[in-house]
Amino acid sequence: MERVNTVEPATRNTPEIKADSFINIRKIIMTLIMSGFALLMIVPFVWMISTSFKSPADVFVYPIQWIPSSLNWEHHIKVWTGSDSFVTYYLNSLKISLISMIGAVFLSSFAAYGFARIQFKGREALFLVYLSMMMVPPQVLFVPKFIMFEWAGIYNTHWALILPGMFTIFGVFMLRQFFLTVPAEISEAAFIDGAGHFRIFFQLILPLAKPALATLAIIDFSWHWNDYENALVFLLDKDLYTVPLGLQNFILENNVDYNGMMAAATAGIIPMLIIFLIGQRYIIQGVAGSAVKG
């Protein structure tokens, strides 16, 4: 996936290195400017957290109080303990996202290996069918899936999200790209030693693909965690709600309680922020790699 850097370090000339070793005024100014814009990017998050701790009277005070005059925990308590507690939504979202993600990583890696490393009749045509399905927008599929799920009795159950969630064409595509970069000699040597495709897949390829699998796992999990549209279409009962639906419900029912709304939004965002901080490397690599190779 990574392209070999064509620039030899030796071709850099010495003045350039010298300039780098001094404190570079221009670089400091640029850093300050770009930090300023970066702050602008995260201002909504800061405002959200700050508002969730304010008293109702202070929400729209201008100039904006970035640090609340007193810490009001009651909005967060309301979100987590009220009649529609976020504990339920978290558990539902966690269940759906985790099972879907594990299924998606497993099934995609299997299929990707088939597409990348096994020669068989009809492979290219089949892959083309997969790719063409990437063009079909979810809006085309909502109605027929709704009718099918209703008929199969999984409408308004978590299965309506989990089962389709285990299949990601993007995942197959991405892992196939990765498997193609693993040199063929590696598996040829194993073939000569008498190993079959299953052993090569589990003992050779999968361990090598750990970074790619981690990337897919994180990206896929975040999709399911943030997925609002499918939940909106396929879930009805409040006790089945995922975090985005629960958040919407909370906001409909407390539409003048701005502090509570922001406490609920905080509850919705925090898990993704934590995952991002931990898995940043994988996420950024995955995003950059998948698109540049498009």
Binding site: M30, T31, M41, P44, M272, L273, F276, I284
Partner: peptide
């Protein structure tokens, strides 16, 4: 710039936290 990785993460943050939560903010 200095702190390239930190700045990159800050600019990228909205994308990963996408969804209805930020919409309500």
């Amino acid at each position: 710039v200095y702190f390239q990785k930190t700045l990159r993460a800050l600019y990228f943050m909205p994308y990963i936290t996408s969804g209805v939560a930020v919409a309500f903010v």
